[in-house]
Amino acid sequence: MKQILLLLLFSSFLIGCDTYKETFDAAGTGELTIKLNLLHDDDSLTYNKEYINALSQNYTISDFRFYLSNIVLRDTSATNYFKIPESYHLIEMIDKADTSIVLTGLPNHAFSELEFSIGVDNAANYSTDQVGDLDPANGMAWNWDTGYKFMLTEGLRLIDDVNTKGLVYHIGGDANYRTVKFSGKEIYLNKNNKQEIVLDVHVDFIFGDKKEALKPEDQRNTNFIDFNNDTDQDTMFGPNTQLIADNYAQMFEWKEIFVK
């Protein structure tokens, strides 16, 4: 019995390693910069500036952060891919409305797809004693319910000329993890080992894309968020927060890729 158990354990260990080899691309000299332009109404995100959401409610943003994680590059064969190890990137606006992730040691290979997620996968989300961008000192970990805020948006809701109310969206929880893919791209790290991808991040889409206001609700890509719904169920992990998660999955726009 014990021998069988041992055998089972060892075979599972061997299988685990084999699967890994199949999808592994040897690290190379490829270098990819992902530049993120944080935009609101197609203009650079500006803190404490008066904005209007898709439901014509006025607000300001004073803090905006999110986790971009688990970057994967795929080639057209659909079998080979390279997963960036320990890929957790806290995106925040510091001084200027653009920020970059620099990835090095990538395989010198022709890739056609960029994939990443917004949030933190459950393997990393269930324990907050972590270093790097996941260090709870960065203020993105909950201290009473283990896990990370995937996206943090704070500011003020401007109710009328005199009255304001805090605008606080701390969205997290497994159900709000979203994955974004850009396919059919030419990320040819075999030809030029240093490249830069530029992505626009439409922060306003978190509350709904105003350009879709004239479309019937069922034909919109984004959900229009009503600031009047501001219980914990709407602003942290409740079912309503998945509307916001669906929105932040839509906020990325591929602009260009160029050789550095």
Binding site: S127, D129, A137, D145, T146
Partner: peptide
């Protein structure tokens, strides 16, 4: 851990009392 099991492990729990404004109230940085 905690009365409601909100902490999934003791390591993560530690940050609760350390940073809660009415407990040890520290800024981790």
């Amino acid at each position: 851990w905690f009365w409601d099991g909100g902490a999934k492990n003791i390591e993560s729990l530690i940050f609760g009392p350390l940073t809660h404004e009415d407990e040890m109230g520290v800024d981790l940085k």
